[in-house]
Structures are given as C-alpha cells and as structure tokens.
C-alpha cells in the first residue's frame, strides 16, 4: 500500500511537469528540451534554500520563478535570435546543467529532517489521529506522513489543474492556444506571437521547476542528474492521458494528463517491482514513446492495406 501511495504521490508531483509540457508541446506546439534542465533547476534551488533555513514555501515559489526565467530565455533565443526550437532548448538545457551545479555547489544535496511544504497537512492529520503515526486503511498499514504528502500533492495538483483550465479559457489563454495552431492568424488578430511563445515557455518551465521543487522535497534529495529524460517521461504521460480520455476539451486534456502521469508512474513502479533493472528505465520509456508516436501511423497503413486486400478478394 505504501508503494501505491508513493507511486500516486510521485505521479501527482510529476503531473505538474506534464501539465507544463502540455502547454509547450500541445498548446503552442513547441518541442522544448529545456524541461530536463528546469526540473533540476527547481529541485536544486529548493534544496539549497531549504537546507540553508528558508521557508519551504518561499523556496518552492522561488523555484517556480526560476523555472519561468529559464523558459523565457529559451523563448527569447527562439524568437529574438531565431535559433531553431530544439537547438534553443538544448542550449538552455546545457547551460542549466552548469547553473544547477553552481547553485548546489556539488552534485547532490540531501534534505533529511528538514521542513517541507507538507508540514501543515502532516500536523493537521496528526491532530486528527491523536498523534498516531500509522493508520489502518482497509486493513492496510499506511504511514500518516505519506498520506499527508499524498493529500497535499493532490490538492495542489487539483488546484493548479483547475487554474490552468480557467486560464486557458480566458481571452489570453485562447490566443495562447491559437498561437500553436496558426501563427499567421494570431498575428492577423493583433497578437504579438513572440511574446505569446515566450510567456508560454515561461509558464511551462515554471510548472516544471515547481514539479522539481516538490519532487526534491518528497524524495529528500536533489541531484544534478535528476532531470535527464524527464522530457520524454512527460511526453509519455501526455500520450497515455490522451489515449485514456482524449482531448475534446481543455479540462479533459488537463485531467487526462494528470491521470496519464499517475498511471505511467504506477506502471513503472510495478515494472520495477517485477524486476526491471532501473538502469533500463529510460530505454523502456523511450521505446514506449516511440511506439506511441509510431503506432497511430502504423495502424493507419495496416488498416489501408487490409481494406485494400479485402477489395482485391
């Protein structure tokens, strides 16, 4: 049970990463690799700040701001300096690697016995159970602390998902979505599409960094390598979410992305449990995304072939 709650919690935390990527990949259709760097950026900054005694809330918020800054730089590289989108992301990601090392001062910061943002719900829950640290849940032993983290992640995730949905349906959000659809049209409507792209990348990477900040607090450490492959992870989650519930409205797409992330995390947890070598994890993820990208086309051509054959018969 702890395993499942853990997977759910990590899934919820990472769904902020996926939501960020939903903005860049799906809304403005920008293949943004900055993600790998900005996740670590959020984690690193939070870890350093918390371990030097800052409030975890402030640290988390600053991580969000730092992510936004990173995203805007990628946006500026792309719009003002006309660097291709992939290259702009790679440049930023590479630069962030050094920045993150600088922030942390070394490649790994542990966060044991420090305060985290789940402190308040923990306290509330402890009050509720009269200090009992474990809870019997349908016959399962559940760590109260884990439960508190889970609940706070759930609330945060729901809140952000709800806000994002609201935001994307505003006038501003509508033109943001249109920017990924038809730049020419957006310009003809008097919108500075470059600003739109910069803003979207900022928001996207802000959410990614936020996700990193929470992940560091949950795992109890920040590592300079922790962002590697996260972009593909997020992509896999979005694809699963779309397969699960579709994307007929913005709300559904957001909910799907969160569900997709959780499900993907669960699948990984189960696979690891069944003996998947953690070193192979990234390869499996990449293969999965590859399959998810190729399968629709492959199905289509197969379908065509089949129907052709049936015509011949």
């Amino acid at each position: 049970m702890n395993l499942i709650i853990g997977a759910f919690t990590i899934g919820l935390i990472l769904s902020l990463l996926s939501l960020g990527m939903l903005i860049s990949f799906r809304m403005i259709k920008f293949t943004d690799i900055t993600v790998d760097g900005s996740l670590t950026l959020g984690a690193a900054l939070t870890a350093v700040l918390i371990s030097s005694g800052w409030s975890p809330w402030v640290a988390t918020f600053l991580a969000f701001i730092a992510g936004m800054a990173a995203g805007s730089i990628t946006g500026v590289l792309y719009t003002k300096f006309k660097i291709q989108e992939i290259l702009a992301g790679i440049l930023m990601m590479t630069a962030l690697y050094s920045v993150n090392l600088r922030i942390m001062g070394r490649s790994n910061i542990p966060l044991l016995d420090t305060k985290t943002v789940s402190e308040i719900p923990e306290k509330l829950l402890l009050d509720f159970t009269d200090g009992n640290k474990n809870l019997l849940f349908f016959g399962w032993q559940v760590s109260l602390i884990d439960l508190a983290v889970f609940i706070s992640s759930l609330i945060l995730c729901a809140l952000i998902g709800w806000l994002l949905n609201k935001f994307l349906l505003t006038h501003f959000g509508t033109v943001l979505r249109a920017t990924g659809n038809n730049v020419q049209m957006v310009r003809a409507q008097g919108v500075n599409n470059n600003k739109m792209i910069i803003f979207s990348l900022a928001l996207s990477n802000g959410l990614v960094a936020l996700s990193g900040a929470l992940l560091a607090q949950y795992q109890g450490f920040a590592d300079v390598q922790m962002g590697i492959g996260m972009m593909v992870w997020g992509l896999a989650s979005i694809i699963i979410g779309e397969a699960l519930v579709g994307k007929t409205t913005i709300g559904i797409a957001i909910a799907g992305t969160i569900l997709g992330t959780i499900l993907f995390r669960l699948l990984i947890a189960i696979a690891l449990r069944w003996g998947l070598n953690p070193n192979d994890l990234k390869l499996v993820t990449a293969l999965f995304v590859f399959a998810a990208l190729v399968a629709p086309q492959w199905f289509k051509s197969l379908h065509k072939k089949l129907s052709k054959n049936s015509h011949h018969a």
């Binding site: 935001f167 349906l169 505003t170 006038h171 509508t174 033109v175 409507q189 008097g190 919108v191």
Partner: peptide, 17 residues
Amino acid sequence: IVMAMRRGQSRPLTRAV
C-alpha cells in the same frame, strides 16, 4: 470568432467564450 472580437485589443484574463 471571440479572438477576432478583440482584434488589436488587450486580451484580459476573463472567460473568453
């Protein structure tokens, strides 16, 4: 169409449709 209803104007954070 909602986007065109504010052509060249500000895009506030209020519900569009």
